[in-house]
């Protein structure tokens, strides 16, 4: 099938799928950021059990395969009387996994701050809260722009697991599977989706490195 024929038949579906992929990506990334920050707070808190909990959380979700997590949420959790819509399950899975990576990036962002700065902050009489909000967090965020940009891209790639469940409308990967099982879409169907993913990734990457160049502190 040629590009034109394919687009005339499935063009609307591609537009829907593209929007769906972005919708999942933005929502999942927001979840990942909120959870990632929360877990990072736990991991740097002075309370040992919370630190341990944060560390275990990160190890679980950075190491679990997306397919495995999604299947547990969709097919196994109903046995615990926890039934969520397919959309919610995809969102949880595609949010939890990047949240672990988000916390890892924030931790390494914090680690780029020289300990001397903490000592300096303390010696000029800053309180703990001041130190965290004025010295630690701004610098950690500045150092995390590039990793978080990559995280946004990988969150988008993670949302492809949505093709494993019936979702309406489908996202880009599910649509390729759909077209190829219902019509002979061939290579073209694959490349349209791939191009849409890639274009998104390139745009995200460009914006990310622009911001990074502006805010990163070179040490």
């Amino acid at each position: 099938m040629g590009v034109e024929e394919l687009l005339s038949q499935f063009g609307g579906k591609y537009a829907q799928a593209f929007r769906m992929t972005w919708r999942l990506t933005i929502l999942a990334f927001s979840i990942a950021l909120v959870l990632g920050v929360a877990v990072t707070v736990l991991r740097v808190s002075p309370i040992k059990p919370l630190r341990l909990f944060g560390d275990i959380y990160v190890q679980i979700f950075r190491n679990i395969p997306g397919a495995s997590l999604l299947i547990i949420l969709v097919y196994a959790f109903p046995y615990l009387n926890l039934v969520w819509s397919y959309f919610t399950c995809v969102l949880i899975a595609a949010g939890l996994i990047p949240s672990a990576f988000c916390s890892e990036y924030l931790m390494s962002g914090i680690n780029t701050i020289p300990i001397g700065q903490i000592e300096a902050a303390r010696s000029i009489g800053m309180t703990f809260t001041q130190m965290i909000t004025k010295v630690v967090i701004p610098q950690a965020l500045r150092a995390s722009v590039l990793p978080l940009t990559n995280l946004l891209v990988s969150t988008m790639l993670t949302t492809a697991i949505a093709s494993q469940v019936p979702l309406n409308p489908q996202e880009l990967t599910g649509l390729v599977a759909y077209i190829n099982t219902h019509a002979v879409g061939g290579v073209t169907a694959f490349f349209i989706s791939a191009a849409l993913y890639c274009a998104s990734a390139v745009v995200i990457g460009r914006i990310g490195s622009l911001i990074d160049r502006k805010v990163r502190i070179r040490r």
């Binding site: 891209v153 790639l157 492809a160 061939g186 290579v187 694959f190 791939a194 890639c198 998104s200 390139v202």
Partner: peptide, 23 residues
Amino acid sequence: IDFVRGVPTLLFIYFFFLVLPQL
């Protein structure tokens, strides 16, 4: 490099699973 980094693994799997047999 940019292409393979920007495309999800599942899409490649569907390419090998559904598209290649058509060829």
